[in-house]
Amino acid sequence: MPDSPHSAVVSQLRAAGCVFAEDEADLLLAAAATPAELESLVERRAAGLPLEHLLGWAEFHGLRVAVRPGVFVPRRRTGFLVDVAVALAPPDPVVLDLCCGSGALAAAFAAAVRPRELHAADVEPAAVACARVNLPGAHVHEGDLYDALPPSLDGRVDVLMANVPYVPSDAVATMPPEARLHEPRVALDGGTDGLDLARRVAAGAPRRLAPGGTLLVESSERQAPLLGEIFTAAGLTPRIHDSGELGATVVIGTAPLT
Rank of each mutant, 00 (worst) to 15 (best):
F80Q: 04
P35G: 00
E245P: 09
V42H: 01
H182C: 07
L38H: 12
A131C: 05
D189M: 11
V201L: 01
A21V: 04
T232I: 01
V123N: 03
M161D: 03
V82A: 03
D158Q: 09
A107H: 02
L49R: 14
A8D: 12
H241A: 13
P165D: 08
E22P: 02
A112S: 15
E22F: 01
G228W: 01
D170N: 00
M1N: 07
L257Q: 15
I240C: 12
H141M: 01
R114L: 13
R77S: 12
G17M: 08
R185T: 12
L160N: 01
R185S: 14
V95Q: 01
H141N: 00
L55C: 11
S11P: 11
V186I: 14
L226F: 13
V10T: 07
G17Q: 08
E59K: 14
A127W: 03
L88H: 14
M175A: 10
P93G: 07
Q12W: 15
A46G: 12
N163R: 11
R76C: 08
R207M: 11
A255M: 07
D242C: 15
D144L: 09
G213Q: 05
A33H: 14
A31G: 11
L195I: 05
T34Q: 08
P50H: 09
A233W: 07
V128R: 02
A210Q: 06
A187K: 00
D147Q: 12
E117L: 13
N163C: 12
V67E: 00
L54M: 08
H241S: 09
L257S: 15
F231V: 00
F80W: 09
N134R: 11
A202H: 08
L236T: 04
R14I: 06
D144A: 13
G143F: 07
V157L: 04
Q223M: 13
G101P: 01
R75E: 05
A202D: 06
P151I: 10
A112M: 11
P184K: 13
M161K: 07
A121L: 00
P238A: 00
V9F: 05
Q223W: 10
V19L: 15
L195D: 01
L135K: 02
C18P: 04
P168Y: 07
F20D: 15
G212F: 08
L13Y: 03
T174W: 15
E183A: 12
G137C: 08
G103S: 07
L81D: 03
A110M: 05
S152T: 14
L181Y: 10
R199H: 09
A87S: 15
A187Q: 00
V128I: 12
H139G: 09
A111D: 11
G191I: 09
E178V: 09
H53P: 08
P90I: 08
E52H: 14
E183P: 12
V159R: 04
T254E: 14
P74G: 01
E245S: 14
V159A: 04
L227F: 04
D92V: 06
V159K: 01
V172R: 08
P69W: 05
P184T: 13
S4H: 04
P256A: 03
G79P: 04
I240M: 09
R116T: 12
S7F: 10
D26A: 05
T34G: 02
V123W: 05
V84K: 10
P165E: 06
M1A: 12
W57R: 14
F231S: 00
P93V: 06
L81W: 05
